[in-house]
């Protein structure tokens, strides 16, 4: 859009206004009301979801929930999700281990070492990748990994989460690096620092708080994901004793136990949902708070 476009729009507005009679505008009041109502409507689900998750989940949270294995179908209020909690932590850890170095280094290329059309295309592909449905990440890793190794496993689940995190990490790191002023790079280069030194000793440390925030959000998001794990990690009722066996996760536990008719398991599903929401919400709020004191 050019400046002339805006000007012609402003002209149209001028005419539109001339047509209108002045006075206390019911027209304005009405639309302000509508917009306010819509905002309320948008926030109601958040409040409702949070209220229900807290009420239903909190009543089931006890020591056993964190320390025991999932209960059998007919056992009321026994057992816990300890193995699923461990599984989630391990798989998110594997995912981060794979995707953080991959994504951060790729972002360094985009922001520091590339010029012209190439970075544009890679950024485009990254954004499109972040729009690929997460269940297809699971399908992809199933075909690539589960079939080849012949088993569902924590490693496969971790890889699926890694693929999911990758575009988010690339994008947030890329953006964080670009916030660092050009002048700071010049200062380092102007002193005879090599590219490697400039990036590793100056640009990356300067962008670190922002990058860390982005990484935390990506990890939190991965912790809540279910679809990529359904047929890569599957689920397990038992303790994990190898990274190459089916592995439980909190999110798959919520899915499995919410869709069965046994009340004991349903209640545990609510408790696990509360943990998931807690993780995501806390990290989001912390990230928001952390970004308030950025360097640039």
């Amino acid at each position: 859009m050019t400046a002339t476009d805006y000007r012609s729009r402003a002209d149209r507005a001028r005419r539109a206004i001339a047509e209108q009679t002045s006075g206390p505008s019911y027209f304005d009041l009405f639309w302000t009301g509508v917009a306010g109502f819509f905002t309320l409507l948008a926030l109601i689900p958040l409040v409702l979801v949070l209220v229900y998750v807290v009420i239903r989940g909190f009543s089931r949270l006890n020591w056993a929930a964190f320390t025991q294995l999932p209960p059998p179908p007919l056992a009321p209020d026994q057992g816990g999700f300890a193995n699923a909690l461990i599984g989630t932590l391990i798989m998110v850890g594997i995912g981060a281990l794979v995707s953080v170095p991959f994504g951060v280094l790729a972002a360094i290329y985009l922001s520091e070492f590339s010029q012209g059309q190439v970075p544009r295309w890679i950024r485009f592909a990254t954004n499109v990748l972040s729009g690929v449905p997460s269940i297809l990440m699971g399908v992809f890793i199933y075909g690539l990994f589960v079939i080849t190794t012949g088993t569902y496993s924590a490693v496969a689940g971790g890889f699926a989460l890694g693929v999911l995190m990758l575009p988010i990490i690339v994008r947030t790191t890329d953006e964080s690096l670009q916030i660092v002023p050009k002048q700071v790079r010049w200062a380092a280069i102007g002193m005879g620092a090599s590219k490697f030194q400039t990036v590793l000793r100056v640009v990356l440390p300067a962008a670190l708080p922002a990058i860390a925030t982005g990484l935390t959000l990506a990890v939190a998001r991965a912790a809540g994901e279910t679809a990529p794990l359904l047929f890569t990690a599957l689920f397990s009722q038992y303790w994990l004793d190898s990274l190459f066996q089916p592995t439980a996760s909190l999110s798959v536990l919520v899915y499995n136990f919410a869709t069965v008719p046994y009340e004991g398991q349903q209640r545990l599903a609510w408790a696990a949902a509360l943990i998931l929401v807690g993780i995501v919400l806390l990290t989001s709020i912390l990230a928001r708070w952390a970004t308030r004191k950025q360097i640039y």
Binding site: T39, A42, L43, P45, L46, L48, V49, Y52, V53, R56, A220, R221, G224, E225, T226, A227, S251, V254, Y255, A258, T259, Q266, A269, W270, A273, L276, V277, V280, L281, S284, R288
Partner: peptide, 24 residues
């Protein structure tokens, strides 16, 4: 604050919307 709350809608895991949908 309200903008942040709307953003939070996107942060809630899908499976949590699922369990909420089933029971509420």
């Amino acid at each position: 604050v309200l903008s942040f709350m709307v953003e939070m809608l996107a942060a809630i895991p899908s499976v949590v919307y699922g369990i909420w949908g089933i029971f509420v």
